[in-house]
Design a protein around this nucleic acid. Structure first.
Lengths: 207, 207
DNA sequence: ATAAAATTTGATTAATCGATCAGAAAACTG
DNA sequence: CAGTTTTCTGATCGATTAATCAAATTTTAT
């Protein structure tokens, strides 16, 4: 399962800094010209380095994109989970989950665009697209946390009766859908959408 | 605004048949290997024709993808709108909208995959990705119909108070999210998801 | 300071891309 | 039937792709 060029031992200081630089350049590239046009040359140009240097630090393009995807997912997950952990009741945790998810993507639009580009464009070596990849294997921790909140809320009597997986999918969809709408076409400002979405979700989980 | 090679006059019988064949091959190609790998050569191979023939019938790759996207959206919209029109009350129309949307994509998974591939990969000549394109211009008629149902339901007193655009986005997200989940990873069968989603949406729009 | 190791580049590779063109083949017209 | 137009192919174009390699440079270790 080697995906880095140096699986054994920790990366040197220089290597880690360079990798970070390449990641940032890749994010900017994906955001600006999309996955289809995001060649190594374009990424290298934005990083101000040669294309061969990318090949030196990453096995191949798939390795780079895979690495970046993992990195982006982890950062997003860490932010959301940290905000959820602060709350005690299931109701407050659910609110925190929704608000934190919307906040993170609003605060980092380029990261978000890069994430979308990778998920909907990249494929495993077997040709399976990431977005069709079941979360069964490594199990998306964020999605899992949402289901945990809902289940726990029902057990504690805070929430009413509903199918947890269905409602979890709905919430995830409502969050993801807003994130895809471009700034320009947004009929509702983020603040209003956030508040109203929370209100509507509560109509579902309560009662 | 010429995007076809023969803007004036109707296409001949042969040309129309060939175009349909190329569309079908493109759908299969996008579904099987994704937009990134969907070269004209790959599409031509699946259609059993030469790559030059595609160039003969479509101005360029962008023209082909744009044409296919429009075609797919129109077919899907026609199906959904027809099902909605059969119903009288806003409640029944909303149900029909949700069920028809889920049904269509379940019945045509390849078309759906192709649609997703184009929307999330293709960009206008200006470099703007389709998924970031506001629906303000040509205004997605399906999305518009959903908002109309909700607004009308409120006016008629069938539905309670909520922000139409927010709830419309939620519903669209809940539908789209399920459509992206691969068959394998589905914890809930389509029938159950359909019924439960309708139930949950009613908790929102009623009271 | 010097040798060794790690990092970086420019040049080059073969493969594939979308697109074009001349001409063959097929369909249509009178 | 002959002549014209439409349809189609095979060959080929220049551009771009990801990746490799030897050599140059920088960093690290001694």
């Amino acid at each position: 399962m080697k995906e880095d060029k140096r699986p054994e031992g920790k990366a040197s200081f220089i290597t880690e800094a360079r990798r970070e630089q390449i990641r940032e350049a890749a994010i900017r590239t994906l955001d600006e010209i999309g996955y289809v046009n995001a060649s190594l040359a374009q990424i290298a140009k934005r990083a101000g380095i040669s294309t061969a240097l990318i090949s030196y630090h990453f096995a191949d393009k798939y390795d780079l994109m895979n690495h970046l995807l993992t990195h982006l997912v982890e950062r997003s997950a860490a932010y959301i989970l940290e905000r959820v952990e602060r709350e005690k009741s299931s109701t407050d945790q659910l609110n925190a989950y929704i608000v934190a998810s919307l906040d993170y993507q609003a605060a980092h639009p380029a990261r978000n665009a890069a994430l979308v580009e990778i998920v909907f464009n990249a494929r495993t070596p077997d040709g399976v697209p990431y977005y069709k990849l079941g979360d069964d294997e490594d199990e998306d921790p964020v999605q899992r946390e949402l289901r945990r909140i809902l289940t726990e809320g029902q057990r504690a009597g805070e929430f009413g009766a509903f199918r947890v997986d269905v409602v979890a999918t709905m919430i995830q969809g409502a969050i993801g859908e807003y994130m895809l709408i471009p700034e320009a076409g947004k009929k509702t400002d983020p603040q209003t959408y956030r508040d109203e979405l929370v209100r509507m979700i509560h109509r579902i989980v309560k009662g």
